[in-house]
Write a protein that binds this DNA or RNA. Structure first.
Length: 449
RNA sequence: GUGGUUGUAGCUCAGUUGGUUAGAGCACCAGAUUGUGGUUCUGGGGGUCGUGGGUUCAAAUCCCAUCAGCCACCCCA
């Protein structure tokens, strides 16, 4: 049969894994540096945990798992006959693949509340699945790297998470812009324009600002039937930007606005915006579509990459409420590993990796040399030196070709002469130099590589 | 979910207005070369032309459907 992959998924070859691990290691080490603890949750969750958490569209993008056994016997016959998929769903599927890491985290937190520290800082780096149509930098299976703090509403963590973004992208060598906004600031803005009735609409319209500028926003709001002069007023504020004193004055005319401005001041005094290697700025046009954010929101993008955001996050007041665990405030960020990978690959930001770690390949020249080579390998491995041997005394052409395939920097030939005096003839694959070495000498040579 | 675009060997692609047995480069295998490869030369294996249907004496080529990839939109990482 013809081999193929499901839509939107891919294999990772050895070299890709090395590059991906390079990214994951930097992110993981940074999370650890700030005291975050690792957790993992299952690929599948109960559908009831997942459904209704990501909006109607999210429900459609959830992968559902068909029940095992004779699932049709237990299916809702009426719904099947009517062809009503949504109605039949509950009777044929009770599990789904995780859609993000935040909801599983909230579930985990609620279930383990008594075992966890009062402030729980966790990170999680696992694949998630969405039945989205694939395109550039978008897959149906992709990794997210999340760090969240649950159980504290201190803005210290906002400051810390911005710092983590800054540090990780600096380590990766990607120049980014970290945009920050506050949901309450947006709320205040919507109020001044009389658009607070449907705040979700307001924020999704604002999300288009990035792509289409003011145009998309104006069009969307116009379609909602808002007053043209009010729309223009809001656009005017957005265009002037947060740093404009007049804008801040205007935003402070409402209670929510004052709250937001106070929090921004606090975040500033906590050093949230200072000493950063990347640009960190308050951007009034940053909305973040997901509606559960209630405080600060973040988004990271690489200017001129055409890539979309490399990560995002924010504060949500009631992270675990849906799981009957009330009053837990959370704030978190997420790194989009796939996009970071693609960007770094395109820009050539990765250091060079070798797929195989072996420092040396032993090549037996006759049948007796096979054991001899094996022993040399064992000795090197005792010293934690990665090495391997060609398994049979094949033609040298063949053995050399293999050495090239695994990009071994050294090869060691062993035949009658070598076995007699217990040495190997080592050839440096790059320079072509060839010399005899005993074990000790070989170890020193390898350590000098 | 909507629109555009592509699909020929493991990879990158050529294939004329429809016309013999569908080609090239790279890769792979063997030999020239029995303790020194990467160059060169010779030979070799490998293709239901994405899949299914239709038009035709004849389809990789034209038509329809379908699947998959890519790109844009919606949304998102």
């Amino acid at each position: 049969m013809k081999p193929s992959l499901p839509k939107g998924t891919r294999d990772f070859g050895p070299l890709q894994i090395r590059k991906r691990n390079y990214i994951f290691d930097i992110i993981r080490n940074t999370f650890e540096l700030y005291g975050y603890q690792p957790i993992e949750t299952p690929a599948m969750e109960n559908l009831s945990t997942l459904m209704g958490k990501y909006g109607e569209e999210g429900d459609q993008l959830l992968f559902k798992i068909l029940n095992n056994g004779d699932f049709l016997a237990k299916a809702d016959k009426q719904a099947l006959e009517e062809g009503d998929s949504a109605k039949a769903l509950g009777s044929i599927s009770r599990r789904g693949l995780r859609y993000d890491l935040t909801v599983p985290f909230a579930r985990f937190l609620s279930m383990n509340r008594n075992e966890l520290p009062s402030i729980f800082k966790r990170y999680q780096m696992q694949p998630v699945w969405r039945a989205d149509r694939p395109q550039k930098g978008r897959f149906q299976e992709f990794y997210q790297c999340d760090a969240d703090v649950a159980g504290s509403d201190s803005l210290v963590f906002e400051s810390e998470l911005i710092e983590i973004y800054d540090k990780v992208f600096t380590s990766l060598g990607i120049k980014v812009r970290i945009r920050v906004n506050h949901r309450k600031l947006l709320m205040a803005l919507a109020e001044t324009g009389g658009m607070d009735k449907n705040f979700i609409h307001f924020s999704t319209a604002l999300d288009k600002w990035d792509k289409t500028g003011s145009e998309g926003f104006i069009r969307e709001m116009d379609q909602q039937g808002y007053d043209k002069s009010k729309i223009n007023q809001v656009v005017n504020i957005l265009e002037q930007g947060f740093e404009e004193p007049a804008v801040q004055k205007l935003l402070s005319s409402s209670e929510t606005g004052v709250q937001a401005l106070r929090e921004i001041d606090t975040l500033k005094s906590l050093g949230g915006f200072e000493n950063r290697k990347n640009e960190v700025k308050i951007d009034l046009t940053l909305a973040r579509g997901l509606s559960y954010y209630t405080g600060f929101v973040f988004e990271v993008e690489a200017p001129n990459s055409g890539m979309g955001s490399l990560g995002g996050g924010g504060r949500y007041d009631d992270l675990t409420g849906i799981f009957d665990y009330k009053g837990i405030s959370g704030v978190g960020i997420s790194f989009g590993a796939e996009r970071i990978y693609e960007l770094m690959d395109e820009e050539g930001f990765f250091p060079s990796f070798r797929a195989v770690q072996s420092k040396i390949l032993f090549m037996p020249l006759d049948e007796n040399a096979v054991n001899f080579c094996q022993n040399w390998c064992r000795n090197l491995r005792k010293l934690n030196i990665p090495c391997e041997m060609y398994p049979e005394p094949a033609k040298l052409k063949k053995q050399f070709r293999y050495a090239e395939q695994i990009k071994a920097p050294l090869v060691a030939l062993a035949g009658e002469l070598e076995m007699l005096e217990n040495f190997v003839t080592v050839k440096n694959q790059e320079t072509g130099e060839q010399e005899k070495f005993d074990l000790e000498g070989l170890v020193t040579l390898i350590n000098q590589l």
